[in-house]
Amino acid sequence: MTGGEGARKLIALGAIWAALLLAPYWMPPLGGYTALGTRVLVLGLAAMSVNFLLGFTGVLSFGHAAYFGLGAYGAGLALKFLAPSTPLSLICGMLVGGIAGAILGALIVRRRGVYFAMVTIAFGQVFYYIAFQWSSVTGGDDGLRGFSRRPLDFGAFSVDILSNAESFYYFVLFCFALAAAAMGFVLRSPFGRTMIAIRENERRARFLGIPVERHIWIAFTLSCFFIGFAGALYALLNNFADPKGLHYSQSGDFVIMAVMGGMRSFWGPLLGAAVFVILQDYLSSITVNWMSFIGLLFVFVVLFFPRGLLGAIRRKVQA
């Protein structure tokens, strides 16, 4: 890496974090609101989790909403039945999503390409129907209600993240930062390099001594822990968990965010999520067909910027 490139990366990283830290100040004047920023962070983390597999291991899961939704139900049920603790609910949601991913991942990893994507959809739909049918626990079609995020208790003082949108935003940003740091750490490790090796050339990876299926399983499981965590945050954001969060169309949205933002870059999916969420917020107040517009934009990006929006911006900066 040349010195100039290193400096440019550092500046970009600084800009991203500055924009995220100051979002509650610059978003309202531009017509946004803080809760919208929170939504971007949560869905952005989910898209980054999908991209952990898609962009860095080369494996397309089309059923990741299952683990997102399981994280949401895990957090909601923990708040409702276990204990009124926000951190505990996050841990529960993450564990439910991650453990389900570990078990199902073991059944999926031998498939490749389209077959892999189809099996992930199938398993995802199983969870959707369970959540839909098992209404005594999950609330069925109406979703899981009757819980809300609790104030953060630090002993000497507590932070109200329920009624204060700014406090909740910063709490979510803190959680997002932890998850993003963990993800970045994995990707920089020798294990992360084996993921990229598998993406680049599976046969070569295998004949360099990498047990490819086992490594894909680990990557799949890790990404399910991350997206389960995002799902738990989503339940806290809405004070509600919804079977739609498990549906494959939600998985499709995550894939669109990742690809639109740029799946070869770490931050691309966050940008994709921002574009998606903001357009959805704006367009859905004008038309019920907002998804067609996002679909058109998606096709446009894929055709003209194969490396996604962030890839296109990067190329522009380097030129």
């Binding site: 750490f185 994995v186 490790s189 020798p190 294990f191 390099r193 084996t194 990229i196 090796a197 680049e200 050339n201 046969r203 070569r204 990876a205 004949f207 360099l208 001594g209 990498i210 490594h215 680990i218």
Partner: peptide, 29 residues
């Protein structure tokens, strides 16, 4: 030829070297 086309030559060699050193599951060196 089976290689990792989008990685540098050094990164290509690094993958094999790390596996040989027993680091493939290591979070940290």
């Amino acid at each position: 030829t089976e290689i990792f086309p989008e990685l540098s030559v050094r990164e290509n060699v690094r993958v094999g070297a790390e596996v040989a050193a027993g680091f493939r599951l290591r979070p940290w060196i």
